[in-house]
């Protein structure tokens, strides 16, 4: 049996009913992709999840997905676990309080499949809710207006990326080491993939919906900086 084209991962923790729209958006995107002829594996990564969240996921997605339990207690490490479990050629991530536009999986796959090189793919538009709702437009790393020094000061892309599963395995997310002043596992990962020459590209005509909560990990990382992979002693991390 051949491997599925895409593994669609949703990372859940203790979102309970608040993750219902997220799960529905995953369902819609996966079904749309299947209508386009793709095979999509659904993978629900439950990291230190509670029963109620587990039950909500079961109710919305049924038995179709693979449910993987994790005790990582860290979003980056949970994504690593999912990448290691994924059967798809490609993997894409969704966090428990965000949404995908329904064309995301299909269009990202089409773009990646037609591309001349391996890349990390991002949606064109992000509708960011919160105190100041706004639309954040992604810019690809090969765009002439992309500036690496700007990227060092501002994370250019959200965590909800799409790439070959092998990339996520070869370049795992670092854990958040906020007690040591390093955080932003997605920014760190973006930095490292870029450093290794993997371009980040935008899938036109696609959108994500990001729920920006004031108490999110992002705001607790305010005085942290992105992790430099080459300064990490992965053996000492013991992850």
């Amino acid at each position: 049996m051949s491997s599925p084209d895409v593994t669609a991962v949703v990372n859940l923790h203790r979102e309970r009913e608040t993750c219902v729209p997220t799960l529905r958006s995953l369902k819609a995107a996966a079904e749309y992709a299947e209508e386009q002829g793709l095979s999509v594996e659904r993978l629900v990564l439950l990291d230190n999840a509670d029963d109620r969240t587990r039950a909500v996921a079961q109710k919305i997605l049924g038995d179709t997905p693979r449910y993987v339990e994790s005790t990582a207690g860290d979003l980056g490490l949970a994504r690593n676990r999912a990448a290691n479990e994924a059967a798809g050629t490609y993997t894409c991530f969704l966090d428990g309080d965000d949404l995908w536009g329904f064309r995301w999986i299909a269009r990202a796959f089409a773009a990646a499949d037609a591309a001349d090189t391996d890349a990390v793919w991002h949606p064109a538009a992000n509708f960011v809710s919160g105190k100041m709702p706004h639309v954040y437009h992604h810019l690809g790393s090969e765009h002439r207006m992309f500036k690496s020094s700007r990227f060092r000061l501002h994370n250019g892309w959200t965590a909800l990326s799409f790439a070959k599963t092998s990339i996520y395995r070869e370049i795992p997310y670092p854990p958040n080491l906020l007690k040591s002043g390093f955080g932003y596992e997605d920014w760190s990962w973006n930095t490292e993939t870029l450093r290794r020459g993997i371009p980040h590209r935008v899938v036109e005509g696609t959108s994500h919906y990001i729920n920006k909560r004031e108490s999110s990990l992002l705001t607790s990382s305010i005085h942290a900086l992105p992790t430099r992979y080459h300064t990490l002693d992965w053996d000492a991390l013991n992850v």
Binding site: P21, S25, L99, H134, V135, H137, F146
Partner: peptide, 26 residues
């Protein structure tokens, strides 16, 4: 998205014209 999360989508649709736009400004 309005069919999945109506409140969420409506909040954007209603102010789509006046939404602050951000991007990777060089």
């Amino acid at each position: 998205v309005g069919e999945i999360a109506p409140d969420y989508a409506v909040s954007f649709l209603e102010q789509a014209d006046g939404l602050q736009r951000q991007n990777f400004n060089v």
